[in-house]
Design a protein around this nucleic acid. Structure first.
Lengths: 224, 224
DNA sequence: TAAATTGTGTTGTTTTTACAACATTTTGAG
DNA sequence: CTCAAAATGTTGTAAAAACAACACAATTTA
């Protein structure tokens, strides 16, 4: 299968051979799906059946609250898993939606099968479970990181905290973020025009610079 | 050991017998510690050695940022685990501090041993790992929940979202929260006096009522 | 129990944000 | 390439929040 090339690049299956993958395909009730840009891959509130592995493209995780306000929780790219948090806990409904932000190829895996040892108690399954565990812990870190950003009181501080953490991740003062300005504001849960004003101010002060999704921070301004 | 009575009540060890626990004690390099109120159990930035299981009392998880601002991340009580997110990932330093909010008895467990199968590949160890996994997923949910609260734009919305979720957890419109007003403001990352004003306003409008740490919400006001 | 500390409510001032409306630029589809 | 739609920047106004200062209440502890 040509899809295996994509699978091989994911953290959850990177150490799994094509043969083993074939064997697990049945075990996990694997299904492949293609989605166009803006198509809804998973709809919030629907019963949880699968965990979604993004193989190609990228997608937005969105949450809609009881007042109808939509929050951009995060953006996922190839290799990321959606719905991981529903494993091990009897969560009946997806808590967020997953929407393709560009054409996507995804792989669906049955959430129960993924963690239920198969009949032959195969070694590969153990590896997958261990990888899953690591990924959940990683998600945990990502959530903590976002929490720290949203814990900042002002928009200015949120912006700086986010950009700083992105530059740390990139290992450079020059980096791209996955969000355009509208999405950026949504991600930080602030008003778009207010974000625009704050960004302009920071640029004027020489603390940051940006163009489209490309940013640069003046590291000196971030020292203590 | 008298401590076993406490251990038996925790989610991670609830299904483990005293004999098995004795056997694992060595395996996990278990240590017991007592702390007075306000004592620092774990200090942010120190090298990660152990996972902390709170057996008696309660403790605050606090984070201090590079500007010296302290955020109250959450409050933990007996049965809760601190440092779980350091398992499976080579996190060198604790990202938060753990401070006793009342006298505490805690159990320290070596973070590597906890997930490394012991020589005899005992069944009980498998159970513990599985319980750990569930707990990490639960933590994941807790983080997502707090994220949804902090995603609200105004203090008023944050307060309402938090109180609503607490009432849901309690299964009643009448419930206690673990925070006093100062801690509450800190938990929501808002100004204390601003929170005070918002709470007074909500009480005046008849949407909520409160006294000390006890709260009541008018469920009718929360429909759609 | 008295004294000291910590928690809480209130208020006025300053700063920041949300919101709305609009001009301009960029993007993407046909 | 053209045109419509989406994204971005700007500005003014009203609302909300942060901040600071203070009085009083509650709690702790010596």
């Amino acid at each position: 299968m040509e899809n295996f090339l994509h699978i091989k690049k994911t953290k959850i299956f990177e150490t799994i051979s094509e043969n083993d993958m074939q064997a697990m395909a049945y075990c996990f009730k694997i299904k492949f799906r293609n989605y166009n840009k803006n198509a809804t891959i998973i709809e919030q509130g629907q019963p949880v059946e699968d965990v979604v592995l993004i193989l190609k493209g990228s997608a937005k995780v969105e949450n809609i609250d009881s007042f109808g306000d939509v929050t951009l929780v995060t953006k996922m790219k190839a290799g990321d898993l959606f719905g991981l948090e529903n494993i091990y806990i009897g969560q009946e409904q997806y808590k967020d939606s997953l929407v393709a932000s560009e054409a996507c190829l995804v792989m669906l895996m049955n959430r129960h099968r993924l963690i239920t040892p198969c009949q032959n108690r195969c070694k590969r399954h153990e590896i997958v479970v261990r990888n899953l565990m690591k990924l959940i812990v990683e998600r945990n870190h990502a959530l903590s990181d976002k929490l720290k950003i949203l814990s900042k009181k002002s928009t200015r501080e949120k912006v700086l905290a986010y950009l700083y953490s992105e530059s740390q991740k990139a290992g450079s003062a020059y980096f791209d973020i996955p969000y355009n300005k509208t999405e950026f504001a949504n991600y930080l849960s602030v008003d778009r025009s207010a974000l625009s004003t704050v960004l302009a101010r920071l640029k004027e002060e020489g603390i940051i610079d940006y163009d489209k999704k490309h940013y640069h921070i003046d590291t000196k301004s971030f020292e203590i």
